[in-house]
């Protein structure tokens, strides 16, 4: 998958705050929400942002902590916009 790391090796809260602080179009999803063939892991509600056609999301790796990734959005942008579940 093509992605850019915006924030490496951090705590989940830092990553969530980074997304909320740096992006305007933010959606909140529950853990287990499927996006890019992955299931979101994290403390609910999990913020994801849409920016310039990309999706920005927190991604947890057990050995390395949490990362904020920017991924080309494709069809996931529309799914996020339709699936908005709250303002957190």
């Amino acid at each position: 998958m093509n992605y850019e790391i915006l924030l490496p090796n951090s705590g989940f809260k830092e990553c969530a705050d980074f997304i909320k602080k740096n992006f305007k179009e933010v959606y909140y999803m529950p853990p287990g929400f499927k996006i890019f063939d992955n299931y979101l892991v994290g403390l609910p509600p999990i913020p994801l942002a849409v920016d310039a056609g990309d999706v920005i999301l927190p991604y947890v790796k057990p050995c390395h902590g949490c990362f904020v990734l920017r991924i080309p959005g494709g069809g996931e942008v529309e799914r996020l916009r339709k699936g908005k579940v709250g303002e957190g």
Partner: peptide, 15 residues
Amino acid sequence: HSDSGITYLATVRSL
């Protein structure tokens, strides 16, 4: 033993 573990705990509790 780390913050990652807490995120998995929260995820299991949700699912």
